[in-house]
Amino acid sequence: MSLEIINLTKKFGPQTALNNINLQIGKNEIIGLLGPNGAGKSTLMKSITGVLAIEEGEIRFNGLDISANEIESKRTIGFLPENNPLYPEMYIKEYLSFVADLHKIPKQRIDEVIELVGLTPEKSKKIAQLSKGYKQRVGLAQAILHSPDLLILDEPTNGLDPNQIIEIRNVIREIGREKTVILSTHIMQEVEALCSRVILIHNGNIIQDSPVDEFKGKYNSLEEAFASYTSEPAATSVPVSAE
């Protein structure tokens, strides 16, 4: 499995959201995708998943151009967006059955995923009856139901209490043993707990791409490193290549 992003540029009118992005991500990595608000993280994730059209550059996944092979590529990518769009009046198993039908996968997979993400105690409830933590688990369940090679998670623990955060992190860590995960988060402890590599975007440019320890470098914490890297203009920063 490999994800290649080649000279990807995305503009919204006069604003450049992504500026000539080049990345290569291999198998079984948990990547921390960092950046200030408005840096281009969501645009990058939506471009990879096919939510946004690619106008300049190319994204290849498992050797296929995702623009030319849109359906086939989406079969191998799972996505949990930040707002976690769900159907609140549907029961959990009803919703996951709907998702299974979309992907044309066997219904027995539903029970496996419910167990994996820890939904078993709540599986007979409507989504509207769930706490935010359990709703996040439903979102994770739909994202992994079709056994994607690449899982993209946008702020998966946002707004959760400490116990829920630990539980969701454990699920992500378990998934990362077999899949590649791109995790967008503002929580530096989450990066240290889960990620082996950090990709930092600022003003639409990649300004760091390195192992977590290398990203932290001389600073006392990841928060200090993040603040330092993003306080400088992106054009003067030098990317660090990750092997």
Rank of each mutant, 00 (worst) to 15 (best):
G133H: 04
Y134A: 02
Q136C: 14
R137H: 03
V138S: 03
G139S: 08
G139L: 03
A141P: 07
A141R: 00
A143S: 15
H146P: 06
S147P: 04
P148V: 01
L150V: 04
L151F: 01
I152V: 05
I152D: 11
L153H: 15
L153Y: 08
L153G: 06
D154V: 03
D154N: 11
E155G: 09
P156Q: 06
T157E: 03
N158K: 11
G159I: 04
G159W: 03
N163V: 10
Q164H: 13
I166K: 13
I166E: 12
I166R: 12
I166M: 14
I166W: 06
E167P: 00
R169N: 10
R169K: 15
R169L: 09
R169W: 13
N170M: 10
V171F: 00
I172W: 05
R173Q: 15
R173V: 13
E174R: 15
E174L: 13
I175Y: 08
I175L: 14
G176Y: 02
T180K: 04
T180V: 02
V181M: 03
V181I: 11
V181A: 00
I182N: 09
I182S: 08
I182P: 09
L183Y: 12
L183V: 07
S184P: 01
S184N: 15
S184A: 15
I187N: 11
M188K: 04
Q189F: 02
E190P: 07
E190T: 05
E192A: 15
A193R: 06
A193Y: 13
A193T: 12
L194C: 03
L194W: 00
C195D: 03
C195R: 00
S196V: 01
